[in-house]
Design a protein around this nucleic acid. Structure first.
Lengths: 214, 214
DNA sequence: GTCTATAAGGAGATAGAC
DNA sequence: GTCTATCTCCTTATAGAC
């Protein structure tokens, strides 16, 4: 299933003791770091196509050692999805998302959503690819739909208040809006030039489209 | 791996002979129909999470019988991705995609792309979820990137010709444009009210954004 | 063209030595 | 905390009877 090139079945020589060396990566042998490694693997191959063997190899330990730190594959998925959802729902709790005209609240949320997508990229990427095969995945899908419904509700309010166009179905506008923002995970890579401007650029493009200024 | 509810291990009683009955579904025991069934399953559970057992059960025959018609899982994937790519690249061959100002060509392509996404929904959905774990998947990803590059090139031309906004990176505009259009597969279901207007609505929204008319 | 039976290997997960 | 060895189940795929 894995597409990774064949590697010797022997575990790498890297150990905890390498911590003190100059430029040495800190070991990945704690739950938090193993999650980072696992999510990266999940996003490369897909959750279902990634085996515990893949994960342990990426962490530099055997599968058994990996299980010493983690109770199972789904636990890792749950932790990752939780983090993504916390980031997204945190936006809705911000004052600027709860006060003022619907349009300005919407603009704030989109701006922040792009920031969270960028800062929590691996976790949100995993969230947006979940299919619903397990209880954990279905829970995440339900929460995600609740987030989208909040956006859709705000779009409907903005249309009702005459703040944005009423010549297309508000539900359609909301779906395209969320789809546009979420599509960022397909190509965004941290540290690339122009990243600071991304939230502003996205808000401007979804607001005004690609045509203006004419 | 599968999330489908447990079913008796016995094959359903439906056979080819049900063809003549009133309202009977036509049998799915030929390569083309099995592809339809398989792609639907792939999209429900994800390609990697779908077993040949899942596919054969959905077709109403045993796994062995299924293998009599199909050489393997990846062959099904390849046929489905081929169909999706044929639909998309077919758009680029149309006269309206090759003549006239860049902006009008772009509008035509987006319009047609929405139509193809709708008409070939299961196949394009599968294409847009491919991860690159096998040669077939990597081939599809390469072809898909070529399609996106054509769009990006047209956006750049339109900016150079002063037809669309130059205050954001053309590459960013092209990515958001493709992302918006592709996101349709996440929610579009054929036969829903307002489907006929979708291509026009999408072209309008990506062109003008959600704000106007102010 | 469909079936039962089975091969051959990979998956998630655990036991127990060091 | 890490390892080797192993369990059990599921996976893709085939053999061969009917």
């Amino acid at each position: 299933m894995s597409a990774a090139p064949a590697e010797p079945p022997v575990a790498p020589a890297r150990t905890r003791r390498s911590r003190g060396e100059a430029g040495a990566r800190r070991p990945v042998y704690d739950a938090a770091s193993l999650l980072t490694v696992a999510v990266a693997e999940f996003n490369t191959r897909g959750y279902d196509a990634t085996s515990m063997e893949d994960l342990s190899r990426a962490a530099g330990i055997t599968k058994s050692s990996f299980y010493h730190h983690v109770s199972g594959k789904e636990e890792l998925l749950k932790a990752a999805l939780q983090r993504a959802l916390d980031g997204l729902f945190g936006i809705l709790d911000e004052p600027a998302a709860q006060t003022g005209p619907a349009l300005s609240r919407l603009r704030h949320i989109i701006h922040r959503q792009v920031e969270v997508l960028s800062s929590e990229l691996p976790y949100v990427t995993l969230l947006l690819r979940v299919r619903g095969n397990t209880d954990t995945e279905r829970w995440a899908l339900t929460r995600r739909r609740a987030f989208d419904a909040t956006i859709a509700s705000l779009v409907a309010d903005a249309v009702a208040d005459g703040e944005i166009r009423a010549d297309v179905d508000p539900a359609l506008a909301a779906r395209l809006l969320s789809g546009t923002v979420n599509s960022i995970i397909e190509w965004y890579r941290p540290g690339r030039a122009g990243s600071e401007r991304l939230p502003d650029d996205v808000v401007r493009i979804v607001s005004e489209g690609i045509l203006p200024p004419a």
